[in-house]
């Protein structure tokens, strides 16, 4: 059964399109990773699923309930960790978690047990009576995770759950998420590839508001195995350059990584080319002659681009 169903999701902030026709489904108990560079639309998509933001178009269903028609039913089932953990500095960890549990509608008789359980899972026992404002960023992040877990929701939406943590804590959080697998349906976002490899069964890659690829980890690596990524720097990039690059036989995708910088600094145009594209072919292109073809680098695996 599909726990989360997202179809045709659009969101624009004024003239800026944040996400563009996002479609995906998540099965019950699955752990899905949103992978993409900063500003790709991961957080926006997550906010829409949790019902804290309305899309410009499209629909989201969680456990069969439409987020906009039955928001309360959906919210009962979701634990959400936003980018910045939503904590009150002037509350102690324990009283804060109690408040969240009550707010999420946990029955009064189970509040205490649930709080204990989430404190234990996130290893916050040693700081439970301290004020959140006095905690380090890593602990705050863990309080944020505890907060998402405290109502024992069916769905967990975690926006960059490991940001701000030290390597040991990162490992702990990864282990925790693995442990939660099966009990909960989890969507987590990250811009770090090993993160996804460590925790997720399925990856959804988002770039500039579009879903670029979605597949299981194995599927994705076999699909990309044969591809080589070539990074090219040109001094005067233009539509013409892009066009001629696309015309090279074997080029499957062309992604511009940085837009115009100050004083016409070199720009980077990486592209994916099949190994069959010969370098001489590249060098024959018009932009390579007198147009500031500065450098290129070959990278073996496309997935590296996100790491």
């Amino acid at each position: 059964m599909d726990m989360i169903e997202v179809s045709g999701l659009f969101k624009s902030y004024g003239p800026i399109q944040a996400i563009h026709d996002i479609n995906f489904k998540v099965k019950r108990g699955e752990v899905v990773g949103f992978l993409g560079p900063n500003g790709a639309g991961k957080s926006t998509t997550m906010k829409i699923i949790t019902g804290s933001m309305a899309p410009s178009g499209g629909s989201v269903r969680v456990a069969g309930f439409d987020v906009f028609e039955d928001p309360i039913e959906v919210k009962k089932r979701i634990g959400y960790l936003p980018e910045n953990p939503p904590v009150y500095g002037d509350m102690s960890v324990e009283s804060y978690l109690k408040f969240v549990a009550k707010l999420k509608g946990v029955e009064a008789s189970r509040v205490k047990a649930q709080v204990e359980k989430s404190i234990e899972k996130t290893d916050l026992g040693s700081v439970r009576r301290r004020l959140i404002q006095n905690l380090s960023k890593g602990y705050r992040q863990r309080v944020g995770i505890a907060q998402a877990l405290v109502s024992d929701p069916e769905v967990l939406i975690l926006d960059e759950p490991t940001s701000g943590l030290d390597p040991r804590q990162v490992a702990e959080v990864r282990a925790l998420i693995k442990e939660l697998k099966g009990e909960h349906t989890i969507i987590l976002s990250t811009h770090i590839l090993p993160e996804v490899q460590a925790m997720c069964e399925r990856i959804i890659i988002i770039n500039r508001g579009h879903i670029v690829a979605q597949d299981s980890l194995e599927g994705l690596s076999t699909r990309m195995a044969g591809a080589t990524q070539v990074k090219i720097k040109v001094a005067r990039p233009s539509g013409e350059v892009e066009k001629s690059l696309q015309a090279i036989p074997g080029v499957s995708a062309l992604v511009r990584v940085s837009m115009a910088t100050l004083w016409r600094l070199p720009q980077v145009v990486p592209q994916t080319v099949r190994p069959t594209v010969s370098l001489s072919e590249l060098l024959k292109q018009p932009f390579s002659r007198g147009r500031g073809f500065l450098s290129f680098a070959v990278r073996a695996r496309i997935l590296k681009r996100f790491s």
């Binding site: 019902g51 919210k75 959400y80 910045n84 939503p86 904590v87 009150y88 500095g89």
Partner: peptide, 14 residues
Amino acid sequence: RNQTMSLLLTSPVT
């Protein structure tokens, strides 16, 4: 300012 508004808005309260 605390960014806790998102907690209230994603909780099952109207």
